[in-house]
Design a protein around this nucleic acid. Sequence first.
RNA 1: GCCCCCAUCGUCUAGCGGUCCAGGACGCCGCCCUUUCAAGGCGGUAGCACGGGUUCGAACCCCGUUGGGGGCACCA
Length: 521
Amino acid sequence: MHHRGPGHAVQPGHRRRRRLHGRRRAMTDPTGTVRTRFCPSPTGTVHVGVMRAALYNWAYARHTGGTFVLRIEDTDAARNTAESERHLLDCLRWTGLDWDEGPEVGGPHGPYRQSERSDVYREVVAKLLSAGHAYESFSTPEEVTARRVAAGQDAKLGYDGADRFTTDAAKAAFRAEGREPVIRLQMPEADLSWVDHVRGEVRFAAGAVPDFVLVRGNGSPLYTLVNPVDDALMGITDVLRGEDLLPSTPRQLALYAALTDVGVATATPRFGHLPLVMGEGNKKLSKRDPQSDFDVYRERGFLPEGLVNYLALLGWSIADDRDVFSPEELAAAFDVDSVSANPARFDLKKAEAINATHLRALPVADFVARVTPFLTAAGLVTDPPTVEQQRVLEAIAPLAQERMIVLSEAVGLLAFLFVDEVEIDPAAAEKQLSGPESAEVLDAATDALTALDEWTTPALEAALKQALVEELGRKPRQAFGPVRVAVSGRTVSPPLYESMELLGRERTLARLAAARARTGT
RNA sequence: GCCCCCAUCGUCUAGCGGUCCAGGACGCCGCCCUUUCAAGGCGGUAGCACGGGUUCGAACCCCGUUGGGGGCACCA
């Protein structure tokens, strides 16, 4: 593979300018191989935007021959559950995003769950405090707001730095009245800027970001502390995350400078802020939106490689004339520096089209293996399938495969082959099984097929065409519509003759009779 | 309100100053194929938000306007 890790010569192309600007970085660039991370907070459903971020981190690590780290950010005990974490890991595995370090696989920088790292944070905070980068702050949120308002300012400006120089005596007095301080980082006086992988140089003016809280009054650490500390300790070189976190980057930069000063960090990672995944109506795809739940795609029978392909397309393209590719091709080609800065709307239609392409490209045996669990879950085939069920499945698979978008559709499309009596879709019956014309067609078909001695696809085709098209004079769509519905229960089915052959003479004739009875003539 | 990000077909994108009266994909429309529905093949529809610069030349660079989005917690 072509390695283009940081520190290497810049590649041709427009992204070069970002790298060149990078020369002006004030802080130390990471050196060595790329280390990316995915650090979800397991709080319930898995969001597609979050999985896209995981995918890009994985792909960048794989592309550069680097390391992909998984870390669980469960500092908010009230919102995180073991069940959610299991589910998250399961989603990652299903998607094929294997991690080199993290829960269940270990690694040299563990533990990889923040709930197990309290001692680490305590130690770091002590260093920050004694070096004067952080301080105890006794102001309550109400007091801060009151001060802003009194000064005629917008309360949204946030904390005002009033406690930076609280004396020991004053602290003692606050403690005496039962107050517990939060610990804040003292922000530097200089502008904070970085060269973003996706956006180029981004700059925040000095003073624009208030001293922020690192540790709660009750002593528990916050994300604002823990996330950069762990990135530093785990040697993360490239932080690729959603654009919604971009405004917090100045704080991280300031913290990194402090961490470097006290010897906890050796370098500041590069950042890449990925475009947001939008839902309908130009809004960030929220957790409330059913479209955002990663599970629904799995359950509908999206292929992992199909979903990976589509998710990768949300902000990136592999070439100007192609958009279908495998996870391996993604890993080989992916470069964060060519990720688009535009927000991307999740387009279900396109996701389905991409998935359908992958589905059709599957070797038949593979397709059968993947579709079987869906049929089993629906109670159509046993687990494992019987020899006969397997035979039918393998025979119909190539025909079914090319008319499906997701695996779950196999249930509706193939059910008729695995039951004695087919359940007829009312709308289909209304359309094809009512009136004397339908009765006539079904009668003619029944006669022709009863007389048929060879029950094969070519024989069935010849007999039906002869009886319905030639003798009855029906147009093909009028001739075969009723027969199709009678046999399969739907207006959409695998090819008719093949289906009838697989179904066998007895069940086919029984269904024609049953349908004939419904015509009401 | 303040800070930040973004701006090419309806959607996702290619485009990196001339090779662009802007390419691909999804969608949509039409035709072909055809036993339904698909698939497949062929063709079509549709876009550089606006205004100023810079330049011999701008979708591409700069500034502004407008529009959209995100963030402003003792959540992550």
